[in-house]
Every structure is written in C-alpha cells, then in structure tokens.
Design a protein around this nucleic acid. Structure first.
Length: 512
RNA sequence: GUCCGGUUCGUCUAGGGGUUAGGACACCGCCCUUUCACGGCGGCAACACGGGUUCAAAUCCCGUACCGGAUACCA
C-alpha cells in the first residue's frame, strides 16, 4: 500500500516552529517513500480558528517549499460525517448519551483547572462511573426525544466487569507499535469515556481526526508526542469502528531554552516561521536546520540539500528526547538559535550563485536597488559583486543593508566606522581627495585592477609617510559606509573608477 | 496525584559492553590581513545519581532524582 501522510494544523495562529518541523518530517517521509503528503486544516474549533491563521500557515509551508499533494481538506466541512459516525456508534451501543449538564469552561486557566481536578482525584477516579453509561436504551431515547441536551461519549470497555468489550481488544488495554517510541500500552482504566460529540452537536477532535484519517486513507500518522495519549483514545475509536489504525510515529518536542514550553505567548516572534522569512533566512537553510532538530542520519554531516534529506530520511533516525531551540532573549546577536544563524550564513556564502540570486533579487527590489541590467549587460559585474560581498553576510537582508553602497549612491555611513577610520586621522580629509586625483591621472591609460590599484595606493601612502591601513580603511569608509568588508583592493575594483573618484572627493562622511 | 516518555560538552548530536567518548554551533586563543563578522589551525567542554550483571558498563537490568508530555463537551 502506498504511503499517505498528512500535516494537520489547527489554524489558531501562525506556523509554529514545532509544527513546521512536523510538516517537514511528514513531507520528507512522503517523498522518501514515494507517497503522498496531504494537508488538512483542523478548524473544528470555530471560536479559535481564523482564516488569517490558515493563510499564515499556508504561507509558511509555501515558504519552506513543502508542497502538498491533492486538495486541502478543511475538517469543518466534514462535520456531518463526524456526527453520523458518532450516531452510528451510539446505535451500536459502543457509545452512549451523557445528559450531565455541560460544565462552564473556566477558560482563564483551563490547563490549571484540569490539572487540579486530576490531582484531586489522586488517581483513584473510576473512569467508568458516569451515571448515564448504563441507562437503558429506552430511557436514553426517551430523554433525547424530550429534547434534553446530551453529549455522546465513547463507551470504553470496563475492565472490572469485562462488559462492553466485544469490540475492543480483549487485553483490557490499547496498544500500538509507535515507530519512534516503541510499543505503547495503556490500560482502559486510564482512559476516560471520551466525548465524541458535544451537546451542541459539535464533533470533537479525536472523533474528527479518526474519521478524516480514515476518509483520507492515511497510512502513517506522524505528529508531536503531545498526542501520545490521544493516540490511545483514537485507537479505541478505530476499534469501535472495526477499522485497522494507521501506523503511528510520534515526534519529540521542541522546547524553549529553559526546557519549558516554547510558546507564542511567552517567546513571541522567534517561534514563527514568517519571522525567519522576513529576517532574510533562506528556506533551504532553515529547513536544513529544522531537519536536524530531533532527527539525524547518524553521520558527521550538517549541510543537506532537500534531495539528500528526502533520500536519507527515515523514522528510525528520529530521537526520543526533546530538543532545545536555543536563543537568548534581549541579546540581539542571539535572538534565535546560533546554529540556525550559522546554517543560513553558510548557505548564503556557499550556495551556487544561480541558486541564490533569485532570492537576492526580491530583497534588492524591496530596497530599491534592483536594476534590470543585472540580468543582461551588467550580469557579470553583478555576480562578481554578490560573490565578493556575500562572504561576510549572514542573511538576505545584508544585501540591501550593508551591501547598499555597491548598488546605489544612497547609502548611510556607520558612525562607528567614521570614528574609527576617519575622525582619528584628520589628514585623510585632504589625502583622500588627493588620492582621487592620483587615481584619475594614473588610470587614464591603465586598467583599474587590483594589482595596479595596489601599487598606486602603496606609492601614495609612502609619499605621505603613513601606513597603508590608514588610507585603505579611510577609503573603505568613504566608499562603502561601513568598517567591514572584503579586501579593499577588490572593493575599489568592483566599485569602479568613476564611483571611487566621486566618493573619495565627496566628503559626505565628514558632513555627517 | 496518576499514566506515558526522556536524560552524552552551554546547545544540536554520533556512539550503544573494551573508544584518547567523535562532529557541528557557540565561546576562547593563534595565524592570515589594510579593517572584519570570511578562511586556516588549536583550545575549553559531556555520558544525571545509586545499586546490580560482567574480566570489563556511558552502553544491559533495577531503583532514585530531575525534566517533559498527557490527564477538557480545546486542538
């Protein structure tokens, strides 16, 4: 049977880094096995789901180039089928009506409330003590017919009485062979009679997921390990339905630096995929980073192309322990994981230019630096320039920020660079325009190349009795606005004689 | 509380009875150099703890601690 996996986010926010990794692993598994990668939007929680979130998640996936197969499934469209399934289980006696009035949700601290309630039970709670569990069909039907509201709960087999277990595993527990965590078992006594259908007729998560996974013919469910207990509940639903469950593989979680939960609320934009897109990350680099968070090919390699990832990906390589996404709040240099930043810089510096330039182009357009000539007449110059300046760049943003002076006269001067390279040497205010004059004479009849420039500048500094570095760095500041960059000889040459003369004479930096 | 899972350098990880416990990032130092955030070389740094099994345990078993997840008419 051909593999079919799905990524099933709920649209209650942007694409979170953990979800993105889940999507990536599903994608890699599908491509590795020649199967299908499907997308399902789990929007059954109308109150929290938004179209904007859906769009943002789709944007994030598109950015990461995790293209899905087939039509997107919107879970809310299947609600009728979910309801029908619940009714069927009810009719078969595998579920029952619970007429207990709905408790008011205390949504301020739902989590805490749940936890407190569970703790108060001291683990002594009998999960089968619902008073409506065993009322007669007649009574149940009559009350329903009278218009009394009810939820539908799955009738999880009672291990003490041995009743209701004709459809469930006779072992008294649910079990499945997780592809990552191994054999998972859970006593029926540990599982509550979960609600399938709310009293307002709304299908709930576990029911919806099972129905849709069946309908979509999903063969492998790859999702976060926070779903491990849900899986037992879902296995029970599969058993009630008489359908063989798919294969499950649960993924370790991605944690915050304090090993706590990584959340939008607490950690903000650092967890959102769009942040990385907007910060000038290359999708390929971020994907590479994500792939190595919780998975490894057991070899000493860090850089993997998408093809390599597809080829090498396997469920066996997934870890069981959670991984920390390492960053330091309030430290601009460490705003996100070091390795992600390094990975991006590595891609910027080493990817083939023809692979990189399509991503640099929109960045330059946004900075009003793009010229059509860069694709025809000035293509060679453009590529040389990109190749030269990218050696010290970290993100795509750098091409339109630090790299501005290479493409436009409209660039800023870094005050620190002025201080360090110009202000300390007042003579430069006279010398640099003089150097421009010298260049004009010297290069009237000889090529403006690194070699020639070097000899002219050397001769000039000797005459002035100063160090080469003083003139070079002063020129660097005037020509590029910043104190760092490639070899100054290369910079002179790439900027060209005309612009060099203009900038050496401008005195703009001093005016600032 | 209960159930489930986890624990190798600061972080991501390799290894899985005998290794100088390997790599990457980060950090530090040196070199290159006109600057530098590139590059080169080097350094610091880890098997949670306690028992057992064994000639030999980071590796297998048990326990403890700690961390995480789950425990909804949320997803």
């Amino acid at each position: 049977m051909s593999v079919r996996v799905r990524f099933a986010p709920s649209p209650t926010g942007y694409l979170h880094i953990g979800s993105a990794r889940t999507a990536l692993f599903n994608y890699l598994y599908a491509r590795h096995t020649g199967g299908k990668f499907l997308l399902r939007i789990e929007d059954t929680d109308l109150a929290r789901s938004t179209e904007e979130s859906t769009r943002s998640i789709l944007d994030g996936l598109a950015w990461l180039e995790l293209n899905h197969d087939e039509e997107i499934v919107f879970q809310s469209n299947n609600a009728d089928k979910h309801r029908a399934t619940a009714k069927k289980l009810l009719a078969e006696g595998k579920a029952y009506r619970d007429f207990t009035p709905k408790a008011e949700p205390n949504d301020a601290n739902v989590k805490d409330t749940i936890k407190d309630r569970a703790r108060a039970n001291q683990g002594e709670k009998n999960m089968r003590d619902n008073p409506f569990r065993d009322i007669s069909a007649e009574e149940s039907n009559a009350r329903a017919a009278a218009g009394e509201p009810f939820a539908i709960r799955l009738k999880v087999p009672d291990v003490r009485t041995g009743s209701d277990s004709d459809w469930a595993s006779p072992s008294g527990k649910t079990s499945f062979q997780d592809q990552v965590y191994g054999l998972q078992e859970r006593d029926h006594a540990e599982t509550e009679d979960l609600v399938l259908l709310r009293s307002d007729g709304h299908p709930l998560y576990n029911l919806a997921v099972v129905c849709d996974d069946i309908e979509m013919a999903i063969t492998h469910v790859i999702r976060g390990q926070d779903h491990l207990t849900n899986t037992h509940k879902q296995v029970l639903i599969y058993e009630a339905l008489g359908i063989t469950p798919p294969t499950f593989a649960h993924l370790p979680l991605i944690m915050a630096p304090n090993k706590g939960k990584l959340s939008k609320r607490k950690h903000g934009e650092v967890v959102s995929m769009t942040t990385y897109r907007d910060a000038g990350f290359l999708a390929a680099a971020f994907r590479n980073f994500l792939a190595l968070l919780g998975w490894s090919a057991s070899e000493e390699q860090e850089i993997y192309s998408l093809d390599e990832l597809v080829q090498k990906f396997s469920l066996e390589g997934i870890h069981r322990s959670n991984a920390v996404f390492n960053f330091t709040e309030n430290d601009p240099r460490k705003w996100t994981d070091d390795k992600a930043q390094w990975m991006n810089a590595e891609y910027i510096r080493t990817r083939p230019l023809d692979e990189l330039i399509p991503f640099i182009k929109p960045e330059m357009k946004a900075g009003k630096l793009w010229r059509e000539e860069y694709e025809d007449d000035d293509k060679a110059w453009f590529e040389n320039t990109i190749n030269l300046i990218r050696q010290r760049f970290f993100t795509l943003k750098d091409f339109s920020k630090q790299g501005r002076a290479y493409f436009s006269e409209d660039f800023d001067f870094d005050p620190a660079a002025i201080e360090k390279n110009l202000s300390k040497f007042p003579d430069l205010k006279i010398w640099l325009p003089e150097l421009a004059d010298r260049f004009e004479v010297e290069f009237a009849d000889k090529p403006y190349t690194e070699e020639n420039i070097e000899s002219v500048v050397k001769a000039f500094t000797e005459e002035k009795g100063t160090k080469l570095g003083v003139v070079m760095n002063g020129a660097r500041t005037l020509l590029t606005g910043v104190a760092v960059g490639p070899s100054m000889l290369s910079v002179f040459e790439i900027i060209g004689l005309e612009r060099t003369l203009l900038r050496l004479r401008s005195g703009l930096a001093w005016a600032k």
